[in-house]
Structures are given as C-alpha cells and as structure tokens.
Design a protein around this nucleic acid. Sequence first.
DNA 1: GAAATTCACGAAATCGGTTTCGTGTTGACA
DNA 2: TGTCAACACGAAACCGATTTCGTGAATTTC
Lengths: 340, 340
Amino acid sequence: MKQKITIKTIARELGVSTSTVSKALNDSHEIGKETKDKIQSFANHYNYKPNSLALQLRNQKTKVIGVILPKIVHHFFSTVIMGIESYANEKGYHIMVCFSNEDYQKEVETLRVLSNGSVDGLIVSIANETLENKDFSHFIDLVEEDIPLVLFDRVVDDILCDKIVVDDVGAGYKATKYLVDIGCKKIGMITTPDHVSVGALRRLGYEKALIESYVKTDKNLIIKIDEKQDIKKQIEQLFEQNIDGVFAVNEIYAANTMRIAKEKGLNIPNDISIIGFTDGLISEYSSPSITTIAQHGFTMGRQAVELLIERIENETEVFNPKKIVISSDLKLRESTKPSS
Amino acid sequence: MKQKITIKTIARELGVSTSTVSKALNDSHEIGKETKDKIQSFANHYNYKPNSLALQLRNQKTKVIGVILPKIVHHFFSTVIMGIESYANEKGYHIMVCFSNEDYQKEVETLRVLSNGSVDGLIVSIANETLENKDFSHFIDLVEEDIPLVLFDRVVDDILCDKIVVDDVGAGYKATKYLVDIGCKKIGMITTPDHVSVGALRRLGYEKALIESYVKTDKNLIIKIDEKQDIKKQIEQLFEQNIDGVFAVNEIYAANTMRIAKEKGLNIPNDISIIGFTDGLISEYSSPSITTIAQHGFTMGRQAVELLIERIENETEVFNPKKIVISSDLKLRESTKPSS
DNA sequence: GAAATTCACGAAATCGGTTTCGTGTTGACA
DNA sequence: TGTCAACACGAAACCGATTTCGTGAATTTC
C-alpha cells in the first residue's frame, strides 16, 4: 500500500505543527498568507484528502444513513432507494444499504451492527417474518437509544417513531370502487396473509368500497397468498367462481392473474378487469398493460429521508413522532374497461 | 441525546482503567476472572457497544465496500447488488450503495468522496456518459492510490484493475445462432450506441453468428437506440423491413419490439421470433413470455465482491489484474419457435 | 519607552477504542 | 529469607483529524 498522506506528513515535511496545517487547510485567519499558500499547494500537489473516519469520530457524526429493506429485486423498493439516495445526496449524506431478506434474525443482526455509531440514523421497512412474529423489541431498543429511525411502507404502531406510509386503505378503496363503477359484479381480491399490514389495509379499502356499493363481501373471493406455496395454483381457486374483476395487492399477483385468465380463454378487459399494485415495469410492458395503483416510491423515499435528516439535525427538539401518508393514484391502462 | 456509554464510562464507574476494561471485554488472559466478570456484566447490563468509528480509525479499515451503479431500477443491477450484499455479508462487510445516474460528474464526485477512507474498496459499473466521454482519469487516480477496485459489466481496458464481465460476444452469438437455427432468415438487432461496450460486444456476437451461417449482415437491420428519443419510433423503423427475428440487448427493447409486432398483427413466435437480454420480471411475465439471455447477476455480484475482498485482505501481493468472464445462458420461453 | 494589541503559530486535549510496556504484589522455590 | 516468575492491572502512545488556549515576537498606542 502506498503511504497515505496525512496532516502529520505535511507538518513534518514542511516543518510546521499539525495544528498549523489543519488551520491552513481550513483557511483560518490565524495563519499567515505565506504559510497558508505553502501548505495548501503542498497538500494539493500530493492530493491530500482528510481522513473521513477521523472527522467522523471527532464530530460524532458520519453523514451516513442506514437503509434496511426486505428485498430489492422489486420495483417499489428500487424506486424508494432512488428517492432516498436522491435527497440524501442533496443534503450531503450517503446511504448504507442492507437487506433483511424478509428474515427476522438478519434484521436484528443488521440493526445491531448499524447502531454502533456507523450511521446517523436509519430508514427501515420491516421484514415479513418480523411482522409475523410481532417481536419488535430490536426496534424499540433502538428508539430508546435515541437513534433516529424512520419506518416506511411496512410499519407498526408498537414502535414510536416517524413513519411514511401509502394510503393503503384509500388505494384499495379507489381500485375497488373503479371496478364497481365500470360494472364489475363479482370482484375478487388477491392479497397477502393478515400479518402483512399493507395487505390487510388494502383489503379494508376493498371491503369499504364494496359495502358502500351495497355489494355483499364474500370471504371466498379473497385469496391470501402463501408465498411458500405455488402462487398460480392458489390464484386459480379464485377462478372457480364467476368473477369479472380482480384487485391484486402487487404486480406479480396481477400478472399471474392475467396469465391464468388468458389461459382460461377470458378476454381482458371485456370478460374480466384486473387492477394491480405498484407501477412497475411488468404492469407497463405486459400486454395488455395493467391498470395499477402507483405508489410513488420515489416520493416516499425522499420524504422518509427528509424526515430522518430533520430528526438527526435537530435532535434537541421534543420528540413527537410524525406519520406521513402518501396518496396513491390509479393509473389506468388496458387491463380494465374504460369508465363510461 | 441519551449519554452514550463508552469504555471510559465503564472504567470510571467501576474504578478501573480503560485498558483493563478493553482487555476484559476482549476476554484477555491478562485480566483476573473476578474483574472480568464484573466488567462484562456491567457492560452487558448497560448494553455497551464498542464505537465502530474508533475501531475503524485504529485498524485502518472500515469493513465497508462502496458500490457505484449507473441505476438500480433495473433487474440486472438489482440482482448484482443482492449478490454483492450476500457475499459481503458472509465475510463481515457492509455495502455503501451510490448511484451515478449515468452522469459523469456525479460519478467523479462519488468516487472522490468514497475514496477518503470511508470504504476499503470499490465495485463500480461505469456510467454511460463516462463511456461516451472516454475520460477515465478518476478511475486511474484511484488505482494509483492503491484503493482496491473491481469493475463489472461495463468495463474498459484503460483502467488497470480486476474486472467481471459477462461473455457478451458469446451471448450475442448464442442468441443469434438460435434464431438462425429455428429458421429465421432476416434477423434484426436492437442495440445501444457504440460507446456502450456491452452493446458493441453483443453486436459482434450477432455478426459472428450471421457470418458463420453465410448470412450477409445488413447495416439497416441494426438499430442503435438513442434513449433520449422515443424508443418505439426507432424500433418501428426495423419493421419496415421484412424481418422474422429480433435480438434486443435488453428487456425493455425486447418488450417494446414485441408490442410493436403485436400491433402490426404479427404472430409471435410464428411470424417473428424475439430474444431479449436480462432475465427479469418483464421477460418472465409478459405474454408471450420472452426468450432471453440470463446474465446471472447474482453470481456476478458475488464474484466481484469475492475478488475485491481478496484484494483488500492480501494487499501485499503483486498486482496482477484478473478478468473473470461469466457465461450466460439462453433461457427459452414463448417468444421464439421451439428448435426443431 | 513602557504597556497593550495584534499576529502567527505550537502544545495539548479530544473523539473511543487497542496495545505495548511497565510495575507492584503474590507465591514458589532454593 | 532472598530471588524470580507469574499474575493482574495501569500509564501512555496511537489512529487522524479539530480546536482551545497559550506564548513569543512584532507592532501599535499613550
């Protein structure tokens, strides 16, 4: 390894003290012009870069934000990351990205490692297994240590911190209402198990829209996907009933539904209308393209990090957790009949 | 902010020296069992965590790997990240992810910031604008500073460092050869401008396959997409000729091609066969599903970080840059006729 | 010409750990 | 009883910066 150039090197080489070098490089008025020039040009010539670890240790801040996601090969989470990085970058922060892979143990471990001073704050979307366990003590400990934390998308009330969520109930309502409005009589829903909060909330919206339209909700029309089993088989059950509309809580479920419908010889959207969630590439490029709820992941990411940085930089303030709800839009495409 | 508990706190509280505390926590034989127990249980009770910044500064290593990508809302890069994180994690490293957004300036800036000691090494895929500029001095400086660097996917010869690439020529050959074999007579190619090395290499493979099959290559059959313009319009030009096969260098181009073919009333795969690149969700879920070259991004990520960690941990070795070529597979789906 | 400022710089503490080296106490052994 | 090793712990240097405070010399002020 080539010899790293430090303040000490410069000081020795130029016969001055380290304090003088430091001040000169920071353009302090205490240092005479001549000395300053000499030091600066020397530093410049040897491409001196202050060691950030030393600065971080001294300033007790890293300008790094930890981000823990359940997964990333997923359009929504990718866009959230972009949003986070975008705003963080504007504010001079960097992001450290980790994945829980939906695994409780890995989430706990990652949280533990990141909370030892290597980041100024954390943005997290909770792993499925954790939501299932309902064990949030690792987050609660974090909050007690006063480490700034912002949860997004998958959140729980037990943790006292800032949160960013999409208006899942509203989105579920919007999607279902649209299906009712275009004339669907029997609308199925494809969702996640109950412990995944977002799935449960979207279902609430679904039911609300049906009740409002005086349609009886039918438990057999709601499929809760177990991802450990074969997804297509589970969805096929829904087709045993005479459905003419489907609301799926994500792109993959919607795409699978569409494929099954086609295989059964149904015409989309004339025989059956399908609405998905997450405005990703699948919805955009499949044919017919899929009407979907756009979650605005980029905005969510920006909002999350904006909230976090505010917490980090004004830590003295009284703590009053905020919850920001991002509205979502229905993006009409070809998988639904046009509204009359 | 709650008072952070440090070694000094423990030492003061227990009436011992900081060295004793440090040794006790590291289970040194120098410390008596009684003292050790006392210190350990105290530390445990107050949930002491050693400040990682202090350790990093002392050990002169951060156990962090910087990753710079052109973008992330892209199946290939997402899977590479997963691969990187997966292996890094096994080896006790974390990753710091940044994006160049295909922008030269941002790449330079990010490289500058990350090379000041905050990471032990870097994994980068070069931004398009940089490839266009052909200005790689920021990378060359990095190498001269002996900061371990691994390039992947988009690489250039000018930079002396380890590289991981897919066998782009081979992949282009494989795809085109398959199209020839199933009977396509006029095969178009949809690629990137020449400065994007991967596009150029895949084209070489395409041409090689055609020449081998005694098919004359025709410049009009090759469309170089300018992403700043409307993609569909550019692809449509290709259909003015009587093509019966298309090889596209990514998913998006392939999906667009398929859509246009459908709009023109062509049957896929009977009238025209289409092969894409990147085995992402679009290829999997569109209908018909798209035959594609699977790049094995996860493997690439793991290989890249494996190489990098080896460089980091054996820095004394003579430097002899390696180039690892990852082979890619043709994943047959519905957009191509079955081989007879 | 003595006192007060200003100027330009250095010594040392600090951030939170690790590690080397030194030292006082104890026990064993001759 | 004197010697020496083993034991248990502390002092201080170190990683690479910043920053407070102090100080000698030059300059200004009365």
